[in-house]
């Protein structure tokens, strides 16, 4: 199966990435020799306890933070970071308050030096695909959380980046909006053939959306486990009702040491 072969080609690999942050009491190690691979057209979720260093990994991949040691290779070439090649969607819906929706969406195209006329056409096209037509000239603070997040998602997709890094993109949204946007994301990823790395604290979301899940341990963090997720239906609701879903869910909960009841001795 050739399709399967390309999907197993390694796009990005991280080897023994270490990073510590200076603190008053000396350096605090955060990433403690991280190893994992991202395949071409992969959909990988990274889950782990809060504060373990998930955002830090993204900052390293995006080239915003230099690791203390370790190496990254992208399509076989050693790289220091993927600045200019990633679509990074940060934890908050980081829209520029002084730019309209259109201005925000066009930001990445401007950075790439795309001709304004063409950038405008592309932006309008995306806005209509994502149901934001009519809000071109609205400022972010007049939009609902879901709309802001959609605008941020368009901004991330529009530059056609090699890898999407999504840092808890839906965590601030209500459940309905979240399911809806998960669907939007899956469609977009399928249409545009993107590689996605998603950080989430939501095991549910990780299982429903991903082809693979990387579990990180407590800080200083390293990869605790990698799971392949095989579900027949990958739509947000369909996946959640798949018989295999709850097995994955329980396995991952176990790995995160999540306890829902106090242990009785």
């Amino acid at each position: 199966m050739t399709a399967n072969d390309t999907s197993r080609t390694i796009q990005l690999s991280l080897r023994d990435i270490r990073k510590s942050f200076p603190a008053r009491s000396g350096p605090v190690p955060v990433l403690d020799g991280l190893d994992f691979d991202i395949h071409e057209r992969d959909f990988v979720s990274i889950i782990g306890p809060s504060g373990c260093g998930k955002t830090t990994v993204f900052n390293v991949i995006a080239g915003l933070l230099e690791p203390d040691s370790g190496s990254m290779t992208f399509r076989g070439e050693p790289v220091a970071g993927l600045r200019g090649r990633v679509g990074y969607m940060m934890q908050k819906d980081l829209l520029f308050p002084w730019r309209t929706v259109l201005g925000n969406v066009m930001l990445g195209l401007e950075m790439k030096g795309v001709e304004p006329k063409q950038a405008l056409d592309t932006a309008r096209e995306y806005l209509s695909t994502f149901g934001l037509s009519g809000f071109e000239n609205a400022y972010p603070k007049t939009l609902s959380g879901g709309m802001r997040q959609r605008a941020a998602l368009i901004r991330t997709l529009i530059t056609d980046p090699d890898i999407l890094l999504l840092d808890e993109p839906f965590s601030a949204l209500d459940y309905q909006t979240r399911l809806y946007l998960e669907g939007v994301l899956l469609d977009a990823v399928e249409t545009f053939n993107k590689t996605v790395v998603l950080v989430t604290h939501d095991i549910d979301e990780a299982v429903a959306l991903s082809k693979r899940v990387v579990v990180l341990g407590n800080r200083p963090t390293r990869v605790k486990a990698v799971h392949d997720i095989v579900l027949a239906d990958r739509s947000p609701i369909g996946a959640r009702s798949d018989p295999a879903f709850s097995d994955y869910f329980h396995t991952l909960c176990g790995e995160l040491d999540i306890q829902t009841r106090r242990k009785v001795a």
Binding site: A62, L64, G84, Y88, M90, F96, L107, M111
Partner: peptide, 10 residues
């Protein structure tokens, strides 16, 4: 974060 976002865009 806005600065980081732009930096990530190159």
């Amino acid at each position: 974060d806005l600065q980081a976002l732009l930096a990530s865009m190159g």
